Structure formats: C-alpha cells, structure tokens
Simulated scan of single mutants.
Amino acid sequence: MNAFKKTDKPTQHAMINSDLMVALINLSGRQRMLSQRIVLNILFSAHQPQAIVQAKEALTLFVQTHTLLVNGNHEYPGICFDALEKVLFGPDHNEAKIQQFIQRCTHAIDTFERSASLPESVIQTLGEEAGMIVTILNQVTMTYEHESKRCELVRRKKQESLMHSIQKIAKEAKIVSFNAQVIAARSGSAGKEFAVVASVMTDITNEIEQLVAAAMTST
C-alpha cells in the first residue's frame, strides 16, 4: 500500500455546503466501522477461513475511502480545512498511524493466505491497533462535525448580514419613494405619472421588507 501525501489544497478558504459535509461525516463514520470489520474478520479467519475474503474487501474499501477523504476528487474536496489537516498531519502523526494500520492489516492478510494461520504476535498487535485506530477515526469524525457547525454559523451570519443590508436598502428606497410622492403631488397634473411610479416603488419596498422579515424569522 502506498502512503498518502498531504495535498497542496488551500485550507480554510472555501465553504463546504451542508449536503457535502453530511456526506463527508458519513464517510468518516463508516471508516470506524470498516476498521473494526477488518480486524475482526482477520481474527475470525483462524476458525472461518472465508472471513479473510471479507477482511480484504473491507480493507480495500477502507483504503479507497481514506484516499478520497485525504486527496479528494471531482466530487469531494479532500483535506480543505486547517483543523482536519492538523488532526491527520499534525504532531500526533495520525496519518502515519492510519498507514501503519493499513500496512499491518495487509501483512496479516498476506500471512494468513500463505500459511492459513496467524502468529500470536500478529493477533496481539491487531488487537492493540483496533483500539488505537478507532480513537483516531473518532477524532477525524468529530473534526468534520465541528467544521460543519462552524460553516453553518458562518452561513447564518452572512445571511443575517445580507438580510440587514437588503432591509436598509428597502428603507432608503421607501424614503425616496415617499419624497417622490410629495414632489409629484406638488407638481399637480404634470406629476400624476410620476406619482404612480412612486406608489409602485413604495409597494415593492414594503414587499421586500416583509420578505426579509420572514427570512430572518426562519433562520
């Protein structure tokens, strides 16, 4: 298995939409389940030889998903925010530990396929790896969840700021339309058409204010 490398993707710049974040959280959560399925099937293979096939399938899927989460593709962004990069490539060296887990599982599968048995040392190591890898994958999933909450908070603040800006513009437009109606009234018959336009403008600004109020209530 080739080790994955940290990508040069920009960090903390692009907002991830909520649907994509849910998909990333689900993929990350599935990795925890797969890691335990790999280990258990390897250990079960001593009594159920067919379990080694399931272990290989789970390991292949685990590696594919991890590659996707780290490097991304046309659909998924890979490592695209600082907190996740720190978890995987920071001082705890969790990415290296994940690679070590993959390599040891691969070695255990190869050993079993060659000799139809596993040394006690391999079994003990896999047992230790199982707990370690779950802790790391839990941390990765929690990082995605925290980023999801952060993104949602940023979106909400931006939406509120936009609504306030629209509200401010609508109020200014209402003042302009009111002044226009006053001028039109003073202009007599010459200002009738202008008065109609000013009235329509007032109706539009009222509608904008109602829509903004409804949008802010629903956030």
Results as ranks from 00 to 15, higher is better:
F62D: 01
H74T: 13
Q50K: 13
N73P: 04
Q103M: 11
S18D: 12
A46T: 15
Q36L: 03
D82G: 07
Y76Q: 10
K86S: 07
V70E: 01
I25N: 03
A51Y: 06
V63L: 01
K97A: 15
L84E: 03
V22W: 03
R30F: 01
Q100I: 02
C80W: 03
L20G: 04
I79D: 00
L40I: 04
F62Q: 09
H74Q: 10
Y76F: 15
Q100L: 03
A58D: 14
L34D: 00
V87S: 04
N94D: 12
H66G: 10
L43V: 00
V63R: 14
N17A: 10
V22C: 07
T60Q: 14
A83W: 07
A58R: 00
A23T: 14
T67G: 13
N94K: 06
V87N: 07
G29A: 00
D82M: 07
I102N: 03
L40A: 10
P77V: 01
S35G: 15
I38D: 06
L43S: 05
V63D: 12
F62G: 03
S18L: 00
Y76P: 02
A58H: 10
L68T: 08
L84Y: 01
E95N: 14
M21H: 04
I52T: 06
F44Y: 15
H66N: 12
K97S: 08
R32G: 03
Q99H: 15
P77E: 09
N17L: 04
L20R: 14
G29V: 08
N73W: 00
E95T: 05
Q54A: 02
L24W: 08
T67F: 03
V53K: 13
N71Q: 14
A46H: 11
L84K: 05
H93Q: 05
V87D: 09
H93T: 04
P49S: 12
E85C: 07
K56Q: 14
Y76H: 13
I42D: 07
R37W: 04
L24D: 06
R30N: 15
T65V: 13
F44Q: 13
R30W: 01
L43E: 06
N73I: 08
A55Q: 02
Q50N: 12
A23E: 13
Q100V: 03
M21S: 11
N94P: 09
G29P: 05
M33P: 09
S28M: 04
L59S: 07
L20F: 08
V63Y: 04
Q36Y: 06
Q99V: 06
D82C: 03
E57P: 10
G78E: 02
G78L: 04
V22E: 11
Q54I: 05
I42K: 08
E85P: 00
R32D: 00
N73F: 04
G72Y: 00
K56C: 02
I42M: 09
A14L: 12
F44A: 11
A23N: 13
I52H: 01
T65K: 08
N26L: 14
M33G: 08
I98G: 05
C80T: 11
V53R: 13
I25A: 06
L88I: 05
A55C: 08
D19M: 14
A83C: 06
L34F: 01
L27I: 08
D19I: 15
E95F: 09
L20P: 02
F81N: 01
D82P: 04
E85V: 00
